[in-house]
Write a protein that binds this DNA or RNA. Structure first.
Lengths: 248, 248
DNA sequence: GCAAAAGTGTTCCGACTACACCCATGC
DNA sequence: GCATGGGTGTAGTCGGAACACTTTTGC
């Protein structure tokens, strides 16, 4: 290892032994099909090397003057049309050799992926199919081997989803504007596995939190008593925003 | 915006409108001085432009063939000698213009910071002073205005510290190998603020978790009954690793 | 009427809170 | 003895788990 002063001198030559990076953004985009009771993730087919013909998470490389978040929103808007969505940064994967485009010895340009995590409403989300690129909602249980390290990223995103469900109101980003408590319960069951909690206790707990507003409307789905339609009341939630909270 | 196919053609020319990045790693390194009951963060003085003469988080730019985590460990090892430490990735800050070295129009090279969060044992940590570079433990309450967006990064790290204290056993990474339950209580008080919990309840809860082993040794510090020295039993903790857990 | 789904209530039990109280040591 | 900090115990209360029960619909 070169001495500290020597290294600094090298570094200041705007190159030296420092790696040059291209920065990518890869999005783990989840949605839930409440009809079919399935947790879905958005995948796109690759049409270029490397990993030509593999499915991958929708991603892009960051452009001049573009923030990481901007890039993440751009990928989303290129793939789906959606009104509301939730998006947050997930993790940055940046080991050498995670992308085959890097030269063998890692002395070429490096590829780094700042992954993001997004939730969209299934009914509102319209996939943008351009006739060329494959794009599809995959049930999480049927996801194939993906390009790059995208299976790891997906796993990480799924874990985040489960954690977030338990202590933050992200469920309402995936549900339609109005929903029944049964829908909400099903959503939790779909993500966390059935038997994650007793229905009537779940119900009581959520209502006690105080930010679910009964719209007065009812909905009837086949047999059984019609259910009240609720909506998430953001104003009522505001005061609890920074307090810890348990949903399950 | 150019059409999709056209954009792809441009991108494939290995340049186009894609930004080029240097990737930095900045570490929020915490420690706790149990004697003086203070939460400390490690800062270094900058000796180069930009922000010459400002304090900053210890950081470095990532080199060829080096992973993000490797780079984070390297910074640490250049600044302090320490046996055990805890380190995890925090967040990636990557907006354009966060670093004045970027050209005004952001069409030059961009600087991205993958921040990390570290905990070290105060007594074990020996600062490496090379006679040139300033380096110091700063009490969190006395941190000045830092270089770049490092104050934001520090805030983010402090929040992570407080969250982690509540549901994961990171406290034992900062405490000495053996410690009294009073030490542990004080540590929590130092970070979360006093009156975060009643002492005897805190005590009962921690002991019930089952991974604090009484070493049999006693320690006497001035007046008062001597306290038992405990240590963290990693084996006993293993089974609870993935279960939710509450420390406060 | 009966099945199905929504919605309500009640009992039990464990966990957390807030204290009061004993123990061992230095001075 | 008494101040100081370590350590134990307990009564009251809150909240979650389990489950029984009522209500409203379709058929």
């Amino acid at each position: 290892m070169p001495g500290r002063l020597q290294r600094k001198a090298i570094d200041s030559l705007a190159g030296g032994d420092l790696a040059d990076f291209k920065v990518g953004v890869d999005n783990v985009i989840f949605s839930v099909d409440t009809e079919q009771n399935r947790l879905l993730v958005l995948l796109v087919m690759r049409h270029d090397d490397p990993f030509l013909g593999y499915w991958s998470l929708p991603g892009t490389l960051v452009r001049h003057g573009e923030s990481l978040e901007d890039a993440a929103y751009r990928v989303l808007s290129e793939k789906i049309r959606v009104e509301n969505l939730y998006l947050e940064q997930l993790y940055t994967f940046g080991g050498p050799n995670r992308d085959p485009r890097e030269a063998e010895n890692s002395f070429g340009v490096r590829y780094l992926s700042v992954s993001h995590f997004a939730l969209v409403r299934f009914a509102e989300a319209e996939l943008i199919a351009d006739g060329v690129s494959g794009i599809a909602w995959y049930p999480l249980s049927q996801v194939p081997t993906l390009a790059f390290d995208h299976n790891s990223i997906l796993d990480y995103g799924y874990q985040r989803l489960r954690n977030k469900l338990e202590y933050s109101p992200i469920a309402f980003e995936v549900l339609p504007q109005t929903f029944t408590l049964g829908d909400l319960y099903q959503l939790y069951g779909t993500v966390l596995g059935p038997d994650f909690a007793d229905y009537s206790n779940f119900r009581a707990r959520l209502l006690k939190l105080g930010f679910l507003r009964d719209t007065g409307q009812k909905t009837s789905r086949g047999a059984g008593r019609p259910a009240s339609l609720y909506c998430f009341d953001a104003d009522a939630f505001e005061p609890c925003k920074d307090k810890p909270m348990v949903f399950i």
